[in-house]
Write a protein that binds this DNA or RNA. Sequence first.
DNA 1: CCAATTGCCTGACTAAAGTCAGACATCATG
DNA 2: CATGATGTCTGACTTTAGTCAGGCAATTGG
Lengths: 291, 291
Amino acid sequence: MSFDAVARVRRFNRAVTSEVGALDTSFLGRGRPLGSARVLNAIGHGRGDVGELRDYLGLDSGLMSRLLRGLEEEGLVETVPQTGDARRRIARLTAAGEAEFEAYETISDAQAAALLQRDPHAESLLAAMDRVAVALGRARITIEEQDPRGPAARVCLERYYAELARRFEQGFDVARSRDPDAADMVRPRGAFLLAMLDGGPLGCVGLKGQGGEMGEIKRLWVAEAARGFGLARLLMQAAENAAREIGIGVLRLDTNRALPEARRLYETSGWTEIPRFNDDPYPDAFFEKRF
Amino acid sequence: MSFDAVARVRRFNRAVTSEVGALDTSFLGRGRPLGSARVLNAIGHGRGDVGELRDYLGLDSGLMSRLLRGLEEEGLVETVPQTGDARRRIARLTAAGEAEFEAYETISDAQAAALLQRDPHAESLLAAMDRVAVALGRARITIEEQDPRGPAARVCLERYYAELARRFEQGFDVARSRDPDAADMVRPRGAFLLAMLDGGPLGCVGLKGQGGEMGEIKRLWVAEAARGFGLARLLMQAAENAAREIGIGVLRLDTNRALPEARRLYETSGWTEIPRFNDDPYPDAFFEKRF
DNA sequence: CCAATTGCCTGACTAAAGTCAGACATCATG
DNA sequence: CATGATGTCTGACTTTAGTCAGGCAATTGG
């Protein structure tokens, strides 16, 4: 590694600290101390369990309790005992709290949008941010099953199609391809899996079923920023597990020579090449796996 | 811009905040409140002037004064009146302060190194971090004249050569090229300019003189993360200004078709193509500018 | 040389953040 | 059903951070 690698990381830290600090102080603009604001936001983002909150924010139990009570007195939060274990408490936003939370979200969104706006090449900035987020948050990546028509899935699919269009010599048009029916990638027939980090998608794979024991893998894609971490393998694993649950015993897929990394993945994870099994104009290689 | 651009920025913010927070709390591990630690580090990084310090850290003058005195009592810092204006004061580290500062630096460096180490593709992570740092710190980029044999310059040149090797079909070997003598790129004969952000280089350009009114532009390079912001143009402008100061009235340069963005820059900033004027094996296009 | 300004310092605050010991209710278990 | 463990809350702190009004010395500009 070149001498200055560490210096480059530290330059990054410096640049980012001042930006993050700016966000913090802008939170103060709403007349609430940072601590309370952080608690309110964490609750708004779905962290209800008081213990989990304390853990996430790294606060002492006494301080946590006091902050919560402060928010309660403002009428922004209410806490109820957890059903099943009344020692634990769950905090949730009241209507007023929801409104206040939205105000903070608006501030954050506006700052993010402003940053993108003042950059002449926002797309490359976003890609770089994704890359950094993955490096820092790798441990938090999870595989989730979601509807292929949901927003996160749609983002993945759009980016997947765009990438195919870039990489195939003849371009790519979804309409000409054998686009699987969404219903075939939802239980009970199939499944659609997403790799998620902090609420946003990083990759996807579709398991298309037809009710029988045959299934097909479709739409395997990983965001460029998240490549090289074995995510594709994880997604495929999850898809195979789903197939097993659904009762599918034979999986097929098609691919193209313009995607050598995909081919390598299949070849090293138990797939065998078979003759063409469809008339889709794009693929030129076909694989099968039984289990 | 796709629907989720803002969401991606916010995911980045979240990932980075926890990392930065971790650094902050690790600073606390040395038993000093964050405020004092920040002052100590700012001084260590060469920010001596008390007013500048206050400005940089965004602190009230009273608080600043108190923090400084605290550090003085610990024997880490001493302040002396500025020669010329005894109202202003300059803070500098004592030997003990230097040692303490180094300890903080070591913590930061170790965290940075650990981050790189646990990433399977550190080079791409660094590139992404550079890209983000540029986006956030664009306003802080400056053009500085430095020795072409200094560390920052050497980093640039190495990356420049590596890029030529990647982009030229026949590769690139400095030894075979007309490598300018460093002394020709230092005053009084020439100059070497760097685009700097937060102490690290983002690009460079060499102005090679021979004592006469002819000069040559060499080694124009901008880090990939900083392209598209007009840095090359700024560097060229600075080189021309330096040429004017030195008494150079005619500038030449050579380039290669494998670098179309360079060619475009020359064509749109007053350069005219001329016949080959040297026998370097790599260039295939030659330009001149008079002023 | 006098008045206004500048740069830093001090004292006297307030607010926020963080700590710690114990109280209290609830839960799990033998 | 007694016992210990768990999760949250309360009260009584200390430490940091931040604010504001003046004070003092040095400097600047008539």
